[in-house]
Structure formats: C-alpha cells, structure tokens
Simulated scan of single mutants.
Amino acid sequence: MVYLFFCVSGALGPLNLNFSVPRRQGAIANMRRLEPDVSLLTETLRDYPGAVIVVGNAWPFHYSLDSLRQAFSTLGRRVTNFVSTLADRQEEAILDFMKGRTEPCVVVASKDAEFSKLTDARRVDVDMQLGFNESAQSALLRHLRAIGEPAIRELAFDDMLRATVSGHALRRASRMLSLVHARDDVEFQRRLRSILGDG
C-alpha cells in the first residue's frame, strides 16, 4: 500500500470554499477548479491499485469522508482518510499520520503549501496555475515506479481498514497488539503462569 497525500490548491465539486489548503498569512486563495486534476490523477493511478488517497487540504474541517469521496467521485473508495491541517502545520499533520506506519507515501502538493526538506524526497510539486498536469503526472509515476510492489499490489481488506484509521488510533492498536502477541513470549508466559498459580 502507498499513501498519496492530496494537498492541491483549488475547489472540487461541492467543496467550494474561499480557501482550500493551509497557506501563509496574507496569501491569496487559489480557487482553480480541480476536476481536471482529479481526472488526470485517476488515469495516473489506474495501474497502481495499491495507492490510496489521504486528503491534506483544509476541506475536512467542513466535510465528512463520504463528502470527500463524492467530490473525488472518479477515485471513489481510494479516498480512505484525511488529515486535519492548520495554516502552520500541514506537513506536521502528514508526518504525524505516518508515525507508526511502515508503508511508503508520496505528497502531491501545490507550491503554496508549506512543506520543508523533510518531505522533499517524496513530494510532487504542483504548479498553482497549471495544476496536476503532465509534468506532475510524470513525477508521480517516477515515485510509484520506484516504490514498486506496494504500489501495484491489490489492497486486502486489512489494508483498507488500516488506511482509514487515524494515526493515533493505529498507534493505540499497535500497543494493544503487542500485548496480545505476548503469548509468544516464553518469559512472559512463565511469569503469567506463576502469578496465576499454574506452575
């Protein structure tokens, strides 16, 4: 599985806000329509069933995941999650989402979004005026080809489930699972039997 963070400035379908991504104070909102971007993104991902979309725009403050899926109608169930972003923490929100996740990710972002060198190696920069065009498509394809098998493997139910939970919930689940897996720990089992008075 590959997480693809969509952080492209503009409005999509009913998501007609006066802003679309967190941006520097005083920056002018870019309300370019994103339907062509999403159409080209859909075409780009056709051979990469392992790629899921996580929305990194400000839309989730106003819309549910179902609303986002409707707006990204051609991508449908690929839209698995979103990150709640504020003007000064878009990159931080993405990195926090990825904590505890071992899957690769790519960030597709407009140049007005505030990203640092932390995401340089996995970012596709999108021109604010041209949008997700052939140049951005080529850059994304290079990332997906380099990622290889996780990008082309069909997603299992467990993959989709993991993609839809928040980073915080995933980290809690991982801690709980480590306790469940303690049954494989011989020393833990010996101490447990001792406590229970069973040898």
Rank of each mutant, 00 (worst) to 15 (best):
M128Y: 05
A29E: 14
R191A: 03
Q137T: 11
S110W: 05
S67E: 15
L68A: 05
L144C: 01
P14L: 15
S174C: 00
S194H: 10
R162M: 06
A146K: 15
V186Q: 12
V186R: 09
L192E: 02
D184R: 07
A136I: 10
R142Q: 12
H168I: 08
E92M: 05
G76Y: 13
R69D: 08
R175A: 09
R191E: 09
Q25K: 15
D198Y: 07
S138L: 09
N18M: 09
P49F: 03
R78A: 07
C105S: 10
I152L: 02
E43N: 01
E92T: 11
L179T: 00
D125C: 09
V107Y: 03
S67C: 10
A113M: 14
T80M: 12
G197I: 03
L144Y: 02
K111H: 08
M176S: 03
I147K: 02
V180F: 07
A87E: 00
G13I: 00
D158E: 08
P49W: 07
Q25R: 14
V124H: 01
A27I: 08
A58R: 15
V108M: 12
R193S: 06
C105L: 13
S166T: 05
L130Q: 10
Q70F: 13
F82R: 00
N57I: 05
D96H: 14
M31E: 12
V79I: 15
M160E: 08
Q70N: 14
G56D: 12
L86N: 08
S178V: 00
L130K: 15
Q129Y: 10
T102P: 04
H168C: 10
N30P: 00
D184F: 10
E35M: 04
G167E: 12
A113K: 04
A173F: 03
N81L: 10
Y63F: 14
D159T: 02
P22S: 14
P60E: 09
Q70K: 15
Y48L: 04
M1A: 13
S67F: 08
S39P: 00
A11Y: 03
Y48E: 03
D47R: 13
R24L: 13
S174P: 00
Q25V: 04
R123A: 13
F115K: 05
L68Y: 03
L161V: 14
E92K: 11
L130N: 11
T42D: 11
S178M: 07
M31V: 13
E91R: 14
L68G: 02
K117A: 15
F72G: 01
L86G: 08
D184I: 01
V54A: 02
T102R: 11
I28W: 13
S84Y: 15
E91P: 04
E103W: 07
E187G: 02
L86D: 05
S194L: 15
P150T: 08
A113Q: 06
D96L: 04
I94F: 06
A71Q: 02
D47Y: 06
A173W: 01
H168Q: 11
E92N: 05
S67R: 11
L177Q: 00
D66I: 09
E154I: 01
S73A: 12
V79D: 08
A163T: 01
R153Y: 00
L161G: 06
E91G: 13
V54D: 02
V21M: 11
T102L: 05
M176C: 01
R24N: 08
R77Y: 11
I195Q: 07
A146I: 06
Q25I: 12
F5K: 05
K99V: 06
A11C: 12
G100L: 06
G10H: 10
L140K: 02
